[in-house]
Structures are given as C-alpha cells and as structure tokens.
Nucleic acid binder design. Structure first.
Length: 130
DNA sequence: GCATTGACGAAGG
DNA sequence: CCCTTCGCCAATG
C-alpha cells in the first residue's frame, strides 16, 4: 500500500472483536456471510457490492478479521477473493483449515484456489436479489 | 495526530 | 499479458 495520508474521524469504538451486535458495516457483512449456503463460496467484492460499498472490498476483509471473534462464528472460509483464491487462509487457526473446510463442503481446492469457483460462486446480490 | 498497513478490486502502463 | 498504481475505510503503531 502506497501512501494513504488520509484519516478522518478517529475511531471511538473498539473493533468488532467485542461483537457488540450493534449496527455496523461488519454486522452486515457477517449476516451475509452466514447466509452463504454450504458448498458455496462468495467473494469480498460481491459482499461489498451487495452492501453497497463495493469500492471498499478491503473493509469486508477487515470485517472478516473479526469473523472468528463474533458469535456465532462467521464461515469466513467461504469467503475468498475475486479470483477464488483462499487469500485469507493464513488468518485461520491453521493455514490449511480453510481449504479443509471447503473440501468438506464439496468445494474443490487446488493450490489454494477454488477450481470450480464459477460453480460454487454465490452472489448475494443475485441469490438474495437485493 | 500522522504514517503505514490490510483476508480486495479495477484500471492503467 | 504481467506488473504497478490508485481507491476505499478503518485500525494500529
């Protein structure tokens, strides 16, 4: 990341690690991810687009960072980047946990990438028909 | 309070 | 076609 000399409102609230269940960008993300059916996967951009902040797909990733801290836990393993790569696998308990979970759900993962991503792809904006 | 980073994505060279 | 840069917003140092 180059230089983002931009900073607006200081953060007065703690990260979603507390799971305050308050209305938050994160909460919406969690809700959508939890709606992802088994054997399917979605992308950060798809979720962001569904929420309306497609330009901030990064924030979705940030929200996922706290996915394991909220209850019930969010199936973050079903969320991958737009290429279908398990970019977030390194953030799990073990780097292999993510692909293991996906494989259990019937998703083929090769080289940290979902082979049939086109088939398992689940777009909330389409499936849920915003 | 400013600088850097981050589980992304699209556009430009 | 591969690599670099920008944008976005929030958190952390």
């Amino acid at each position: 990341m180059k230089s983002a000399k931009k900073q607006k409102g200081i953060s007065a609230k703690q990260p979603p690690a507390k799971a305050d269940r308050k209305d938050s960008f994160f909460e919406t993300v969690y809700d959508v991810v939890r709606l992802v059916p088994k054997g399917r996967a979605t992308s950060y951009g798809a979720i962001a687009a569904y929420i309306g902040t497609k330009l901030s797909a990064r924030m979705v990733g940030w929200a996922m960072n706290a996915a394991g801290t909220v209850r019930p836990k969010v199936p973050a393993h079903r969320v991958v980047n737009r290429n279908g790569m398990l970019s977030g696998r390194h953030h799990f308990s073990t780097p292999t946990l993510m692909e293991e979970l996906l494989k259990k759900e019937g998703i083929k993962v090769v080289n940290d990438t979902i082979t049939d991503f086109d088939k398992v792809f689940w777009d909330p904006a389409k499936e849920l028909e915003l």
